[in-house]
Amino acid sequence: MSLRTCLLATSTLALAAPAIADVNIYTTRQPELIQPVMDAFTAETGIAVNLAFVSEGIVERLKAEGARSPADLVMTVDIANLKQIVDADVVQAVESDVLTNAIPPALRDTDNQWFGLTTRARVVYASLDRVADGEITTYEDLASDKWEGRICTRSGLHNYNLALASAVIAHHGEEDAKDWVAGIKNNLARKPEGNDRAQVKAIWAGECDIALGNTYYMGKMLADEEQTEWAESVRLVFPTFEDGGSHVNVSGVAMTQAAPNKEEALQLMEFLVSPEAQSIYAELNFEYPVLADAPLSELVESWGPVTADETDLTEIAGHRAAALRIMEEVDYDG
């Protein structure tokens, strides 16, 4: 065989070899927040990851695309969003011993359609100057009249507060949950407005003494020169339910029904619960890993231990409609 024939044969074989497929992700998280962990996956496997930021309408987009969708995975935050994509029938069950062994049962779907990747606690930001250590103990206590005129929150209709109210329903039932929501409303120092960071700013400004917020915002504020002073005016307090632990929510991942690159997508899902990925992901977002042995970031560790409530998040999500109805009935935002 001539050299020319050998070269042609080699070229033909190279062209015929299947290329490694990319993994395509629709994400409601800003891509820069998760790009480093995707880069680590690509470095280990050679599989590229394409991130498409979809801030709203992710379910509608997947429905419209149907079987033609290029998306293999969806990454989003909050149990309500994860439940929405499951209820819309745009994702599929994934059977993986790696995922089920790494993720506690309360932080993944009972039918394996979504999997938690990191957690955040819904806690209290308390003024260092005006709230004593040990003054805050439980979520139930926040409805006590001792907090009258001292609480700030964002809208009661926001997913984060609806999830917390849903957890109250899971623990105490709808009637008691309605009394709790009404009690919080009676204790508000001002009409609900702004995001979680805005509540901390209000504490710093002396408008209120305590506020509900997610843990990771402390890290984000400390990393923002303009907001550092706000963060340094408060401390994190981890209330618990009287019969449970601190309310946590998740960021999570699910495989789409279409998933054109299913094998590679599963590789990425399993990588995301590896010690390396869990450490990177949690460090980037000031969140808690779902993998028990993964290290916390130095800042998150400084906040102290969290006793996470063990109520299944799927159960909590099932109470969301009732929580929304309660918020509207008590006119929480009014």
Rank of each mutant, 00 (worst) to 15 (best):
Y217W: 15
A189E: 08
P275N: 05
A254I: 00
H172R: 15
T240P: 05
I184Q: 05
E175P: 02
I280M: 01
L162F: 02
S233L: 07
F271I: 05
S279R: 12
N249G: 11
V253N: 05
V250D: 07
F241L: 06
G213Y: 02
D176S: 15
S166K: 01
I184C: 07
T228S: 14
A265T: 11
S251C: 09
E175F: 00
V253I: 13
A282E: 02
M221G: 13
C208P: 11
E174V: 06
A189R: 05
G244N: 07
G252H: 01
D179P: 05
G206E: 08
V250E: 10
Q267V: 09
G206S: 10
L162M: 07
L212K: 01
N186Y: 03
G194K: 01
D209F: 00
G206P: 08
G183M: 02
G194Y: 00
T228C: 10
S279P: 03
A223Y: 04
A202P: 09
Q278R: 01
W230F: 14
H247T: 08
A163E: 14
E226N: 14
M218Q: 14
G244V: 03
R235V: 10
K262S: 14
W204M: 15
E232I: 07
S251E: 15
V181F: 03
A205V: 08
V168N: 00
D196Y: 07
A177G: 10
I184F: 02
A282V: 02
D243F: 00
G206V: 07
F238D: 15
Y281T: 10
T256K: 03
V250K: 01
V250T: 12
I169T: 03
D196T: 14
T215A: 04
A170S: 10
N187L: 01
N186H: 12
M221R: 09
D196H: 14
F271K: 06
